[in-house]
Amino acid sequence: MADKDSGVESISRYTRRVMIAIGLAALVAVLLYFASQLIDVLLLAFAGILAAVAIDGVVRLCQRYLPIGRRWALVIALTLVCLAFGGLGALVGPRLAEELPQLAQQLPEAFRRLAEQVQGVPGVEAALKEFDNPASLLGQPMLDRFTSAFSTTFGALTNFLLILLVGFYLVLSPSEYIHHVVLLCPPARRKRLRQVLFLQGRSLRLWLVSRLISMLFVGIGVALGLMLMGVPMAGALGLVAGLLSFIPYLGPILGALPTILIAFFESPELALYAIGLYLVIETVESNIITPLAAKGMVSLPPAFTVMVQLAGAAVAGVAGVMLATPIAVVAVVAVQMLYVEDVLGDDVDVLGEH
């Protein structure tokens, strides 16, 4: 009788484990489904976290060099950010306001002219026939996709303001939000989770610094170089190149395309000079400027980064490409600490730890 009761109990335990496993699998499936439906909102929320991390970095910088508390450091940081944006807008805003609409108008025509020039190349003509209007590749549809990168029902400007708003509220009291996240973890693991969140924030700050250095150097270098070469709309093209440098590896390639098209619209020789300018700037940036100015900054292997960006593009389009790398930074830190170190027991140089 005892053996029979023991067998029934073991079957009951096995059934309970199976039911728990099925329940967990169903929960994960439901969460993934809702995540796929809310991908735009989740990306917008993560962009807000990035904004908060960036502002928090300025706050920490103020506290490092000034004997003040966090609240006053936050006021100074927000003032500096507003002054930086306002000063930049006053300095280059009028010129860009004139050049950006011209750039949007001339890109389709530049692409059309390039298509006409290369139609004689074997294989190119057949590829162009796949499109009824090749210029439409760079026309309004592409502009619509760029301006609606984070957009479902809101416009790009509304989403940008929402990102800043989320970042502002997060940076006001980050410890409160971290506390609520930590409460979701079992008490024995809460200290470790705090360590993970701390290193994730540090890694994101370091990554953002490296991207900011790259964006400034590329944007200013391209604008000045194109001005000296006599390429029209040099300021707008430099702005596009600098902004797209936020995306590692793929960004510089995307940023070079408008410049090459506009330069080709003037003359093929000017397009060659523009290509040479980009090669020089990217070589100096990747081999000299970033290693010197961003020593110890966070970086991921190129092949891994590009694959992550392609996956982000497949899932969420332009927004996925833009945020794929910082999301990968957060994920890599979590995997290194929670799996490689805690589960496998191996020592590893965690991203952003040193």
Score class of each variant (00 low, 15 high):
residue 112 R to A: 07
residue 105 Q to E: 12
residue 195 Q to G: 08
residue 91 L to T: 12
residue 117 Q to V: 09
residue 85 F to R: 04
residue 105 Q to P: 03
residue 153 T to D: 05
residue 104 A to S: 13
residue 131 F to D: 02
residue 138 L to S: 02
residue 175 S to A: 12
residue 77 A to Y: 00
residue 73 A to L: 11
residue 105 Q to C: 03
residue 202 R to V: 12
residue 142 M to R: 07
residue 152 T to G: 12
residue 80 L to E: 05
residue 143 L to T: 01
residue 137 L to M: 12
residue 104 A to E: 10
residue 77 A to S: 11
residue 100 L to I: 06
residue 79 T to P: 01
residue 181 V to Y: 13
residue 127 A to N: 06
residue 148 S to F: 03
residue 133 N to D: 09
residue 103 L to R: 09
residue 188 A to Y: 13
residue 128 L to A: 05
residue 148 S to G: 15
residue 174 P to D: 00
residue 120 G to C: 10
residue 186 P to W: 15
residue 78 L to E: 07
residue 189 R to I: 10
residue 178 I to F: 12
residue 160 F to N: 00
residue 200 Q to T: 15
residue 138 L to H: 02
residue 77 A to W: 01
residue 197 L to I: 12
residue 133 N to P: 03
residue 144 D to A: 06
residue 174 P to E: 01
residue 108 P to G: 02
residue 175 S to E: 08
residue 97 A to K: 13
residue 96 L to N: 02
residue 73 A to G: 11
residue 79 T to D: 04
residue 154 F to I: 04
residue 175 S to C: 05
residue 157 L to C: 01
residue 194 R to I: 11
residue 131 F to M: 06
residue 152 T to K: 08
residue 130 E to Y: 05
residue 80 L to R: 03
residue 205 R to N: 04
residue 125 E to T: 07
residue 160 F to L: 03
residue 180 H to G: 02
residue 99 E to N: 14
residue 193 L to H: 08
residue 150 F to T: 01
residue 187 P to G: 09
residue 204 L to V: 14
residue 188 A to D: 11
residue 117 Q to T: 12
residue 180 H to R: 12
residue 193 L to S: 08
residue 92 V to K: 11
residue 201 G to Y: 11
residue 188 A to Q: 13
residue 205 R to K: 07
residue 181 V to R: 10
residue 80 L to G: 15
residue 199 L to F: 14
residue 73 A to S: 11
residue 128 L to K: 10
residue 165 L to K: 05
residue 197 L to A: 08
residue 194 R to T: 06
residue 130 E to T: 07
residue 189 R to Q: 11
residue 134 P to V: 12
residue 118 V to R: 15
residue 89 G to V: 02
residue 187 P to M: 09
residue 75 V to D: 05
residue 184 L to T: 15
residue 186 P to C: 13
residue 143 L to E: 00
residue 131 F to Y: 08
residue 170 L to C: 06
residue 107 L to M: 01
residue 85 F to V: 04
residue 114 L to H: 08
residue 128 L to E: 08
residue 160 F to W: 02
residue 118 V to P: 04
residue 81 V to E: 12
residue 96 L to Q: 04
residue 149 A to E: 00
residue 185 C to Q: 10
residue 172 L to I: 08
residue 189 R to T: 11
residue 199 L to K: 10
residue 129 K to P: 01
residue 76 I to D: 03
residue 154 F to S: 09
residue 109 E to R: 13
residue 183 L to A: 09
residue 158 T to A: 14
residue 111 F to G: 03
residue 149 A to L: 01
residue 120 G to Y: 08
residue 195 Q to C: 06
residue 81 V to T: 09
residue 150 F to D: 00
residue 158 T to E: 12
residue 90 A to E: 06
residue 188 A to M: 12
residue 85 F to W: 10
residue 152 T to D: 13
residue 98 E to F: 09
residue 86 G to I: 03
residue 199 L to M: 11
residue 135 A to S: 10
residue 171 V to C: 06
residue 120 G to L: 11
residue 181 V to D: 09
residue 118 V to T: 14
residue 84 A to D: 02
residue 142 M to L: 14
residue 113 R to H: 10
residue 149 A to W: 00
residue 103 L to Y: 04
residue 103 L to K: 08
residue 202 R to E: 04
residue 126 A to R: 15
residue 178 I to S: 14
residue 179 H to F: 10
residue 104 A to F: 06
residue 121 V to Y: 15
